[in-house]
Amino acid sequence: GGVGTLSGSYVAPKTVWLPAMKAKGLEISGTFSRQVGSISMDLVLTNKALQVMSDFAIQFNRNSFGLAPAAPLQVHAPLTPNQSVEISLPLNTVGSVMKMDPLNNLQVAVKNNIDVFYFSTLYPLHILFVEDGKMERQTFLATWKDIPNDNEAHFQIKECSLNADAVSSKLQGSNIFTIAKRNVEGQDMLYQSLKLTNGIWVLAELRIQPNNPNFTLSLKCRAPEVPLYIYQAYETILKN
């Protein structure tokens, strides 16, 4: 499992993004995190070559949400063979935007003194959920009504053993906010909101039935391609 931090969203364990075999001995593993409003790409660079590596730099291709390095990739000393270095690269969301398929695809170029290497990775959308994503209740009700039913997407979150309060507090840790909770005929209905860094709002209804480990998630959003990735974020957050 990953790491739950007190002041930040869920962080998945690092995985290998660039195998050494494909990059003349440079291995890169990484993950993404969000802590008190700051997004970072957390990397481990490992030198599996027989020569020293230096002169590192990183660049992102245009992507759906304008993710970009907020600082240069700083490796303070040359990397000797078999040496690893951990780097937290701060990111912002003011880079060039181009819609990717899948939406959360990120293409990265890394260079060192040997060559330039390319890889792509998927980032979890919850790193883009902002801290002020709690919608006013009146606005929620009006927006929910305003977005047509055709724009409502339905998903099943299967085998989740948490109760409604535990669900709310876990999601809030990743900036998904519960605005109202109602109990109708024994089932808990949670009304929730979140906002992405680019200002897109997502409204959610999470239905939890007694003695049923499968939850129903209904999402309303003016951007119809977004809900699938929001559902994936719910799955990731609730099951870790």
Binding site: L141, A180, R182, V184, Q187, M189, Y191, R207
Partner: peptide, 20 residues
Amino acid sequence: EMDDGLDEAFSRLAQSRTNP
């Protein structure tokens, strides 16, 4: 909590979603 009619509105929403 101040009764601004919104509590009731959420109850109606939840009700309508359960028994459309």
